[in-house]
C-alpha cells in the first residue's frame, strides 16, 4: 500500500511543482492522475521512486519511507516499483528480450547482467510476460524495430519483470494513436486486476482516464483539487482543474494546430512550385 504525506517539490529554478500533496492508494486500485500540462503530474510520480528528489514530505510504501532512504536502500526499494514511460524509454539498441530482462537488474549482480547470464527463472518469466503482452515472436528483435504500440508493450513487460508492488505510469498513451491507446490502457488495467497491483497513471486524456481508472485525482498548479470516483468528474470540476478554458476545446485545439501546420507546409510547397 502506498501513502503520500505532504509531498512538496520546488525545482532549483524556483518552480513550485508540487505543494503539500497527500493521498493513499490501497491494494489493486488504479488511480488516474489528471491535470493540465505543467500541473506537476510527472513530478509527482517521479518523486515516488525519486527520479526527482522531493523537497519535503513522506512517501510510505509498506511502512518504508522512500523519501528518507539512502542510496543502497533506495535501489532495493526501486526494484519493486515498476515504471512505464510516455516515450517508452526502451534501450533502443538492445533486443526486446534484453529490455525485458533489464527489469531484473536490481536483482542480479553486475557480472551476470553484463554477460547476459540471467537466472533461468528470470528468463522463463520474461518469456511468459512477452507472451502475456503478445510479443512472443519478437523476443530477438531490436527494440527500435518495433512499432509504438509494441514498444509500449515491451515497456509494460519490463516493468512487470521487476515483480512490482506498485506501478507508476507516465502518460502511457501520449505518443500512440487512439485505437492503440485504448488497447494499451486496457492491457495495463487488466494486469493490475490480475495481480491486484496499485497503479498511478498520468493521463492527459480525460475520457481515457474516466473510462479506465477506479479513482481520479486532479492536479492543478501542483495542488490536489479533486479526489474521487470517475463519475464525480463534472463539468464544474473539470473547469476547476483545467482552468477557465473549456476542457473539451483543449484537445480540439491541439488537432487544429496540427492541421494548421500541415496546411502551412502545403502552402509553402505550392508557392515554391509557382516561383
Amino acid at each position: 500500500m502506498l501513502r503520500i504525506e505532504g509531498l512538496t517539490k520546488t525545482y532549483k529554478t524556483g518552480d513550485k511543482a508540487l505543494s503539500d500533496v497527500s493521498f493513499e492508494a490501497p491494494q489493486g486500485q488504479v488511480i488516474g492522475l489528471i491535470g493540465p500540462s505543467g500541473a506537476g503530474k510527472s513530478t509527482l510520480i517521479r518523486c515516488i521512486n525519486r527520479l526527482v528528489e522531493p523537497s519535503s514530505g513522506a512517501v510510505w510504501l509498506n511502512d518504508i519511507n522512500l523519501a528518507a532512504l539512502r542510496t543502497g536502500e533506495l535501489r532495493r526499494a526501486r526494484r519493486r516499483i515498476g515504471m512505464i514511460f510516455q516515450e517508452y524509454a526502451l534501450v533502443e539498441r538492445l533486443t526486446v528480450m534484453e529490455n525485458v530482462l533489464s527489469g531484473r537488474l536490481g536483482y542480479v549482480g553486475f557480472w551476470r547482467s553484463f554477460t547476459r547470464r540471467y537466472p533461468g527463472a528470470d528468463i522463463a518469466n520474461a518469456y511468459r510476460l512477452l507472451d502475456r503482452v503478445g510479443l512472443m515472436a519478437h523476443a530477438d528483435k531490436r527494440a527500435d524495430a518495433l512499432s509504438g504500440g509494441q514498444r509500449q508493450r515491451v515497456g509494460i513487460a519490463r516493468a512487470l519483470a521487476q515483480d512490482p508492488e506498485l506501478l507508476l505510469i507516465d502518460e502511457p498513451t501520449a505518443s500512440l494513436d487512439p485505437k492503440t491507446s485504448r488497447q494499451i490502457m486496457r492491457l495495463i488495467v487488466e494486469i493490475c486486476r490480475e495481480r491486484t497491483l496499485p497503479a498511478i497513471i498520468n493521463i492527459h486524456d480525460v475520457v481515457l482516464a474516466q473510462q479506465f481508472s477506479d479513482r481520479i485525482i486532479g492536479l492543478q498548479s501542483g495542488r490536489m483539487v479533486f479526489d474521487g470516483p470517475p463519475s464525480g468528474l463534472t463539468e464544474a470540476v473539470l473547469t476547476q482543474i483545467y482552468g477557465e478554458e473549456d476542457w473539451t476545446a483543449m484537445r480540439k485545439g491541439a488537432s487544429d494546430e496540427a492541421d494548421a501546420e500541415a496546411e502551412e507546409k502545403a502552402q509553402t510547397e505550392q508557392m515554391l512550385r509557382a516561383l
Binding site: L101, G120, A121, I123, A124, Y127, R128, A139
Partner: peptide
C-alpha cells in the same frame, strides 16, 4: 511457474 517457457536465452 509454468515449465512451458524456455529457461535459457
Amino acid at each position: 511457474m509454468s515449465a512451458a517457457y524456455p529457461t535459457t536465452w
